[in-house]
Amino acid sequence: MNLTLRIWRQSGPDQPGGLTAYQVTGISEEMSFLEMLDTLNEELILRGDQPVAFDHDCREGICGACGMVINGQAHGPERTTTCQLHMRHFSDGDTIDVEPWRSAAFPVVKDLVVDRSAFDRIIGSGGYITAPTGSAPDAHAVPVPKEAADLAFEHAECIGCGACVAACPNGSAMLFTAAKVVHLNVLPQGAPERRGRVRSMVAAMDAEGFGGCTNTGECATACPKGIGLNAIGTLNREFLRGGRR
């Protein structure tokens, strides 16, 4: 396949950026989107140009590093991560636009790389227990109902990729925060501090400059891990229920 890529190039956080067009040739259908970008970068390096900066780590869909917006869709046309997106979903002669996540809370570092540490600060505000309670208990010392275990696991699947924020017209982090809240709050181990945890995480989320939720649903459509919109309903309920803990 031969493709035209129009990629967002920006040399640094405060530098102006813009789309630059590149031709890539001989792309195989089996390549992942990132391997296709590797091919481009090898050529750029041989030509003495700056390679396109993009984040990646596991390349198997579990780390959440590889976010980019492809033709206006977070992680591209399939519901998966960019590293798991294969070139068979494109056709010879296509023009593909590649842009970084766009959110005030995710500033561009370089090219397609954004700073997602706002997510770390949300986790840091509530994804822990406030008092040391000794060493970890035995795995089965606290019985966990099957339903709660399944629910926690489904929401623990969130890899913090940020596609929800990138897809949301308000740049809202509600789906991410909701996934964490559901994951931690449905488990008996997380229950004693469930109200305080939600308060802290919502406050941290607001402080980072993410937008509010308008229940538009773009986040859940874009999420590669299938976190559902109802998680946000649970976050809202946990937040509004009040209580002092």
Partner: peptide
């Protein structure tokens, strides 16, 4: 909330596909 939401997405994308 609208002011906040608009400020949270200062740059748009090339493709605007309305799915909602």
């Amino acid at each position: 909330l609208s002011r906040r939401d608009l400020a949270a997405r200062p740059t748009g994308y090339r493709h605007t596909r309305a799915r909602a």
